[in-house]
Amino acid sequence: MKNTLRELRVRMAHAGFALTFCLSPVGAHAGEIHALVRDKTGKGVVDAVVVALPANRSAGNAGGASATIIVDQVNKEFIPYVLPVQVGTAVNFPNKDNIRHHVYSFSPAKNFELPLYMGTPASPVLFDKPGAVVLGCNIHDWMIAYVYVSDSPYFAKTGADGKANLTELPPGDYTLRAWHPRLAGKEEATERKVAVSRTGAVEATWDIGLTPEFRIRRAPIPGQRGY
């Protein structure tokens, strides 16, 4: 009887150890990249997208994104101004204004048009090619936004301080890139190679040139509703 109880305790202990091992967080074996994007004066750049491309592309294959994301239209503006997504992401374009909008893009990565509508279009737009997609509205010329479509699942957008953190990266070699709507030069010119380990974080800083901002001036007519 004593032997039977001892064997039972040993089996339970082994089972408990195996359960603890299986429930260990994946993040404990993943790396991080702490990115900082600044302009030539040293000021942090908001709305820059930092992407980490795995040297072993199969390591970064997450099968695309299935969740539907939103680019809203509020007070005759797109929100957010920059939206980074992974290839395979569907984006909805709801219109919360009490007027109609006509969303379109002529960008090579995604050419589409959502004719005049209020509310939410029947179908979201699938972004199935990598690249930067410029959004516009045929009715309100000042409305502009960007969808950055990444072929890697590892990306992040900078905040007002120019900082962005990429987390849950499998250890390995990566090529980093930084992109911004006003980036002076090509995105490929920002490339750098880094090695991500299981512990600690890689620090990466860019000092990028920005082109002058050009947006058609918003000129609403006071007291007039509609377009």
Rank of each mutant, 00 (worst) to 15 (best):
G159P: 00
C137K: 02
S123F: 10
T190W: 12
E213Y: 11
G131L: 11
V196G: 10
G136K: 05
P181C: 09
E213R: 09
E191W: 01
R182F: 13
G209R: 00
A156Q: 06
R177I: 10
T199S: 15
M118Q: 13
A201H: 10
C137H: 01
T190R: 05
T190I: 07
G185E: 07
R218L: 07
G209P: 05
A132F: 01
F112W: 07
G185C: 05
P220W: 07
P130R: 00
Y117L: 11
I216C: 02
P153S: 11
R192D: 02
M143S: 08
W142H: 15
T199P: 08
A109L: 07
E191G: 00
V134W: 07
E203I: 10
P171D: 14
E213K: 08
A178D: 10
A178K: 05
S105Q: 05
G172R: 08
V149N: 03
S107K: 00
T199C: 07
S197T: 14
K163E: 03
I144W: 00
I221H: 11
D173Q: 12
A132S: 12
G162S: 03
A122I: 06
N165E: 15
P222G: 09
E168K: 10
G172A: 14
R177C: 10
D173I: 02
L166T: 08
L116R: 13
D207Q: 10
L169G: 10
L176Q: 03
A219N: 09
F112C: 04
P220R: 07
K186R: 15
T211P: 00
G223N: 12
P212N: 13
T211S: 14
H140Q: 13
D151H: 09
R182V: 02
A145F: 09
G159H: 05
A195W: 01
T167D: 11
A219W: 06
A132N: 13
S197K: 06
K157N: 00
M143R: 05
P115R: 04
D161H: 03
V194D: 12
P181A: 13
T190Q: 12
L176K: 11
A160F: 08
K193T: 15
A109S: 12
H180M: 14
F112V: 04
A109R: 01
G131V: 07
R215P: 00
T158L: 04
I139W: 04
R177H: 15
G185T: 06
V134G: 07
D161G: 08
F127I: 04
W179D: 13
L126Y: 05
V133C: 06
G185M: 11
A160M: 11
W142P: 01
E113I: 06
